Simulated assay, not measured.
Amino acid sequence: MKEFVVYTALRIVLFLASFGIVVGVMALFSDGSYNLFWAVVLGFLISGVGSFFILDRQRRAFAERVETRAARASAAFEERRSREDVD
């Protein structure tokens, strides 16, 4: 669970930083006015690409945690199923 919270929080921070930079650049080059829709879209795109490279370690830790939990659940299910077969 900790890996999920860390990864999600870092994704949100990365989006907010990207969004802030995009809004700043748009406001700087367009006399203080900007289109909020395009700022959000560009913020999502930039943070998505950035997170692929920047948050690789956190994403791998989260994926390993999920894989471990799935393997444990699968093993427990198989063990319960084999007990049913014996009876």
Results as ranks from 00 to 15, higher is better:
A76I: 00
F19I: 00
A17K: 04
V66L: 12
G43M: 11
I46L: 15
R80S: 13
N35L: 03
D87V: 15
E79Y: 08
F44N: 12
I46C: 09
V40I: 12
V13H: 02
A27S: 15
A76W: 07
R83A: 14
G20H: 00
G43E: 09
Y7H: 08
V41A: 14
E84T: 02
Q58H: 01
A63R: 14
Q58M: 02
F77M: 11
A71F: 10
F62N: 07
L55E: 05
V66R: 14
G50K: 04
D85E: 14
G32K: 08
A27Q: 10
L55A: 03
M26C: 10
G32Y: 12
A39S: 08
A27R: 05
R81W: 06
Y7K: 01
R81L: 06
V41I: 13
S51E: 11
F62A: 08
I12H: 03
G48Q: 13
G24Y: 07
L16R: 00
A27P: 03
F4K: 09
R83Q: 15
S30G: 02
F37C: 00
E79G: 10
L10E: 10
I46H: 06
V6L: 03
G32R: 05
F37Q: 00
I12Y: 11
L45H: 07
G20A: 06
G24W: 05
D85Y: 09
F15H: 06
F44L: 15
S51R: 05
R59L: 05
A17T: 09
G50Q: 01
A71D: 12
R80D: 12
R60W: 07
L45M: 11
S82M: 07
V86N: 11
V66G: 04
R72M: 03
R60K: 15
F53L: 06
Y7A: 07
F52S: 11
V23H: 02
V5S: 08
R72P: 01
D31K: 10
F4N: 07
T8H: 15
V23L: 07
E78T: 05
A70I: 03
R72C: 05
F77T: 06
R81D: 01
S18R: 04
A70D: 09
I46F: 13
R57G: 02
A71L: 10
V41Y: 10
Y7W: 04
A73E: 01
M1G: 14
S51C: 12
D56C: 03
M26K: 00
A27W: 03
V6Y: 02
S47Q: 09
S51P: 06
F37L: 11
F44I: 13
L28H: 15
F29H: 11
L45C: 12
R83E: 14
Y34M: 09
V22S: 11
L14A: 09
S47L: 13
F19H: 04
L16V: 03
R80Y: 08
S47I: 04
T8W: 14
V40G: 02
I12K: 05
L14G: 04
V40H: 00
V22D: 09
A63N: 13
F53T: 09
F19P: 04
E79F: 13
A73S: 05
S82A: 10
G24A: 06
K2I: 13
V13G: 13
S74H: 13
I12N: 00
